[in-house]
Nucleic acid binder design. Structure first.
Length: 401
DNA sequence: TCTGGGGTCCTAGGACCC
DNA sequence: TCTGGGGTCCTAGGACCC
């Protein structure tokens, strides 16, 4: 049976949501209609473009470039800070609203989702473009921001379609439109075909998606291994993946921070790692999960990235245990270069502690669990920072080193 | 006032086992 | 006068997404 998939994408999400927020709070100007961007704080070295208005885009400003470079492209550019709490709220409202149309909804990111509307003709009729317009207009009216809706017979085509022309538009990419709508695009426009693959393809003389679909699969395999088959199928508009409600189970939980200045002191870096460990293991426990793999990631002043990890015999969710590994991993791997960004990642997540099934150190765990339960409940009730571990631990490092 | 943060997936290479 | 080979697990690094 032919499937009908919608992909819904908030136009310039962070910027639109900020515009809605500002208007709601009495700000006179609609920042969507001026050259503007959402950007991080430059003083703490977060100075990149997170979202841009259509006018800013016309100046050639792209997401993730530095604010410094964005300003060079447009002298009158206005920069607004992000408001993640509000974004999350808006995202949840939107997803809740959309799930009234089908239970088969997959949130792909904070501002995007897929709806599987296959077999809904009795409910909504068979004019899907009309239905898409209805959804799009309802969102605009109820929430104050616009979306694009892409319609296709699979997720890939729906996703490509929603990207065609923005904002506030509905597009289709049915199989019989592949030749006219998909093939003329540049290879880099294909979903999941990024910069480095596009560069390689261009070097092979492959520029458009049509070029790509005309290329012998064996040539592609030589350069792209398993990516070759994906590229080939995608260039033909083929995608069999299902719209799957994101089982909400993350594969990993991570935190990383770019520091306001490069740090070379071990005690300072360990303090940061400790507070990150506390945050990440709190999240772990609040999801009733245990981690088997613990990783420390960092980036030095020359932008070289490192990641070092350890897989334990037993999964844990105890801050102290996780930190013990974090500290160990970092001390063993760090070459004493100045650190710009540092983080902790927990992976290989389990829903039960295997440790609880072993004889080893049961009593210790129980005590730790108790302490942590109390701390977690305080954090939950009064927010982060309301409870701080006695800093005995960090102090002892100072003495030791 | 240069270059964020949170994810997923893949691959090469090494260790280890039979 | 030799060092096979399949399988599995683990790690580091990189590509890619929003």
């Amino acid at each position: 049976m032919q499937r009908i998939i919608f992909h819904i994408d908030v136009n310039n999400a962070f910027l639109s949501w900020t515009a809605v927020y500002l208007l709601k709070h009495g700000y006179k100007q609609d920042i969507r209609k001026i050259p503007s961007v959402i950007g991080g704080d430059e003083k703490s070295r977060h100075g990149i473009v997170l979202a841009k208005s259509p006018i800013a885009k016309k100046y050639g400003i792209v997401t993730a470039e530095t604010l410094y470079s964005a300003r060079n492209k447009c002298k009158s550019l206005q920069v607004f800070p992000p408001n993640y709490t509000f974004y999350k709220e808006q995202s949840e409202k939107l997803m809740n609203y959309l799930s009234r149309y089908t239970p088969t909804i997959e949130q792909y990111s904070i501002d995007e989702c897929f709806l599987d509307l296959t077999g809904t003709t009795l409910l909504y009729g068979n004019d899907y473009v009309k239905l898409a317009h209805k959804i799009k207009d309802e969102i605009k009216e109820n929430f104050g921001f616009t979306v694009n809706v892409g319609i296709g017979e699979n997720k890939l085509c729906a996703k490509m379609a929603s990207d065609f022309e923005k904002p506030d538009k509905v597009h289709t990419l049915y199989m019989n439109e592949i030749e006219t709508k998909l093939w003329p695009l540049k290879v880099g426009d294909l979903f999941m075909l990024g910069k480095s693959s596009a560069k390689k393809l261009n070097e092979l003389g492959i520029y458009t998606i049509k070029d790509l679909k005309d290329t012998d699969i064996n040539i592609l395999r030589k350069y792209f291994k398993s990516g070759a088959d994906y590229f080939k199928e995608a260039s033909l508009g083929i995608d069999y993946s299902k719209v799957e409600p994101r089982s909400s189970k993350n594969k990993c939980i991570s935190i990383s921070r770019t520091l306001p200045y490069d740090v070379s002191k071990k005690e300072e870096l360990l303090k940061i790692l400790f507070s990150e460990t506390e945050e990440v293991s709190y999240t772990l426990r609040s999801q009733k999960l245990y981690a088997k793999t613990i990783a420390v990631t960092y980036r030095n002043n020359l932008f070289k990235n490192y990641s070092h990890q350890i897989t334990m015999n037993n999964a844990t969710n105890v801050t102290e245990e996780i930190y013990k590994q974090v500290k160990n991993i970092f001390e063993k791997s760090w070459k004493e270069d100045p650190i710009r960004n540092i983080g902790v990642r927990l992976a290989d997540l389990k829903s039960v502690s295997e440790k609880q099934l072993t004889l080893f150190s049961e009593d210790d765990i129980k005590v730790d669990d108790k302490v942590e339960k109390v701390m977690d409940s305080i954090i939950k009730k009064y927010g982060k920072g309301s409870v701080i571990r006695a800093s005995k631990k960090e102090e002892s490092y100072k003495i030791k080193k």
